[in-house]
């Protein structure tokens, strides 16, 4: 897998090291994929935090795991598993929310779904006799072996969902903060709720492919929560969420390149560090 010759290690000549990042196609692919994913995660994450749907987002990320494992077992592209399972998961979440029972009952139903998803994931992993490193990268992310065609799929999905979200931005913002008045003004509140869950599912599916299923929060929630803390202005907040997600992704990929730890670890630590810092400063 890792050819020793590929890595020249950190020379501490920062300019050289920086240039080295772009020498290898696999690293260029990783940086491009990371950039695409960060932009998408920043935008959808900002709305997710606004709508207080972090629990739903987390559930979708847990569902991403059996998706990828099932795809690995069936021998189809992993992306298919991610998108298929997360999309279906979004529909199930929408159905659960649509039954409109108490909030507690809803949380319980979503929680059970999470447990089921985790169990399914391990079933698929053991069925396919994956080696442990395979499991590792499903859960904690990898930037090795991202191909051109994978980057292209990520790009198409990201452009489509970001475009749809931008087009619906104002009604979605309205429905998220003030649903009664939005409904009375003719905003299709329920349809937007369903549409947003689908967008969220696609974002989680994309993000999982970089950070791994368990660390989706690092890109989806933490930069967005930091942005909400920094400013109540909607457009500025969205921009900040994207900028933060980009910054931690790039830094995380670079650090992972020069070390033995998974990229998800760095992205998580960096974004959490920024969040804590901002919380302390904006006290």
């Amino acid at each position: 897998m890792l050819d020793a010759a590929v890595f020249q290690g950190l020379s501490w000549n920062l300019l050289d090291d920086f240039r080295q990042l772009f020498t290898y196609p696999f690293m260029v692919n990783a940086l491009e994929a990371g950039t695409i994913v960060a932009v998408m995660a920043g935008v959808t994450g900002w709305f997710m935090v606004l709508r207080r749907q972090a629990f739903a987002g987390h559930t979708l990320s847990v569902i991403a795991f059996p998706g990828a494992a099932a795809a690995g077992w069936a021998g189809v592209p992993l992306a298919l598993g991610y998108f298929g399972f997360c999309g279906a998961g979004a529909l199930v979440l929408a159905a659960i929310a649509g039954t409109r029972r108490s909030l507690g009952a809803e949380s319980a139903a979503i929680g059970s779904l999470q447990a089921l998803a985790l169990a399914l994931g391990f079933v698929f992993v053991s069925l396919s006799h994956s080696i442990l490193t395979g499991l590792d990268s499903l859960l904690f992310g990898t930037f090795l072996g991202i191909t051109r065609s994978q980057v292209l799929v990520l790009l198409v999905v990201a452009v489509a969902t970001v475009a749809v979200t931008a087009f619906a931005a104002r009604p979605l913002f309205f429905a998220s903060v003030d649903s009664d008045v939005a409904r009375a003004s003719g905003v299709p509140v329920r349809l937007l709720g369903l549409g947003f869950l689908l967008v969220l599912g696609l974002s989680v599916a994309e993000t999982s492919q970089i950070t791994g299923a368990l660390l989706v929060f690092a890109l989806l929630v933490t930069p967005a929560a930091t942005a909400h803390r920094l400013t109540p202005r909607p457009w500025l907040g969205l921009t900040l969420a994207v900028a933060l997600a980009l910054a931690v992704t790039w830094a995380g990929l670079a650090l992972a390149y020069f070390s033995i730890y998974p990229v998800g670890f760095y992205v998580t630590s960096l974004s959490f560090g920024v969040y804590v810092l901002v919380r302390i400063v904006t006290r």
């Binding site: 104002r170 009604p171 913002f173 008045v181 939005a182 003004s185 803390r229 109540p232 202005r233 907040g237």
Partner: peptide
């Protein structure tokens, strides 16, 4: 974390795509 002014603005064009 929303500003009042943005909420008022929504009343004006919040239903616009």
């Amino acid at each position: 974390r929303i500003r009042g002014i943005d909420l008022v603005r929504l009343g004006l064009d919040g239903s616009r795509w």
